[in-house]
Simulated assay, not measured.
Amino acid sequence: MPYFLDVVAHLKHKGFNVPAALIDIHGERLREVNGRPTIIVDCFPGGELKGTDEVSCRLMGEALAKLHIAGEDFPEHRDSHRGVAWWHKTSQAIAGELEPEQAQLLLSQIAEFDDFIAQHPDLPKTTIHGDLFYNNTLFEGNKLSAIIDFYNACHSWVMYDLAIVVNDWCSDMTTGELDNTKYKALVKAYLHEREATSEEMLAWPHMLKIAALRFWLSRLEAWHGAKHDPERLCAAA
């Protein structure tokens, strides 16, 4: 918990509307209520998007680039709890539960990404959100009013975080394919604020695939884990 509180405190100091914990009269930000850790945060205006469009994608691209730049000097470098080590371990554990074609796809994509990263070990990293789906933002009309839910924040590849956002914000809700209009709006706005290196551009197709795989794998883990746990299966139902 302290790491995530530090991340949002850093971003709030940089001018972002994020749920940073308020400090009480005793100088404390993390409290205990009924035996559970508790924080108090600002209440931001706006609500959850029902879906994305060209305007919201453009705003997100601009905000994400600024968020990545702001995270460059955050001193704590924490690996993702659902990063490389996790997807290696989880994919091996779950492969036997899948249809052969799915298992092959899962393992081959991880191997392909491993090979690429081994050849490009110095891809730029920063402090990333790690889960910036459109329901982790608040909008007031056509204005982005806050970015929330930083509990997947970590120090990782910049392009990986951009790929997570693109895969969610720019996908056609019916077909799952990228919507070219939203895609161009978001990426163009991002690159206007933060220029990508040539190596990052080379990494982009790999990042789109591994970002999709990360969320596919977490959902596979939840589903197949629940199959063997009656309490979790009842809760899911």
Rank of each mutant, 00 (worst) to 15 (best):
M1G: 09
P2R: 09
F4S: 12
V7I: 07
N17C: 12
V18E: 10
P19C: 06
A20V: 09
A20L: 06
I23T: 15
I23P: 02
I23C: 10
D24H: 04
H26P: 12
H26G: 14
R31H: 15
V33Q: 14
N34C: 12
G35Y: 10
T38L: 12
I40E: 13
P45W: 01
E48R: 15
K50R: 12
T52N: 08
T52A: 09
D53L: 08
D53M: 02
E54M: 07
R58C: 05
L59K: 07
M60T: 11
G61Y: 00
K66P: 01
H68N: 07
I69Q: 04
P75K: 04
E76C: 11
E76T: 15
R78Y: 11
V84K: 10
W86D: 11
W86S: 05
H88Q: 15
H88L: 13
Q92S: 15
Q92D: 11
A93F: 05
E97A: 08
E97C: 13
A103V: 05
L106H: 02
I110Q: 08
E112R: 14
F113I: 09
F113H: 08
D114M: 10
D115I: 10
F116C: 06
Q119G: 08
H120I: 05
D122L: 06
P124R: 03
P124Q: 05
K125N: 06
K125E: 07
I128S: 01
I128V: 15
I128C: 06
D131G: 03
D131A: 02
L132P: 00
F133T: 00
Y134F: 13
Y134M: 06
Y134C: 04
N136E: 05
T137C: 07
L138D: 02
L138M: 04
F139Q: 03
L144I: 02
S145F: 02
A146D: 04
A146H: 07
D149R: 04
D149S: 06
F150Y: 10
A153V: 01
S156I: 00
D161A: 01
D161V: 02
L162W: 00
A163S: 08
V165D: 01
V165L: 08
V165T: 13
N167D: 13
W169V: 05
W169D: 05
W169G: 01
D172C: 14
M173G: 11
T175Y: 06
G176R: 11
Y183K: 15
A185L: 05
A185R: 02
V187Y: 01
L191W: 01
E193V: 08
A196T: 03
T197F: 07
M201I: 13
M201S: 09
L202I: 09
W204C: 03
W204E: 07
M207A: 11
L208S: 07
K209P: 08
I210Q: 03
A211W: 03
W216G: 11
L217A: 10
S218V: 13
S218P: 03
R219I: 09
R219N: 14
L220Y: 12
W223H: 15
K227H: 06
K227R: 15
H228Y: 09
D229F: 04
P230W: 00
E231F: 02
A236S: 13
A236E: 13
A236H: 09
A237C: 09
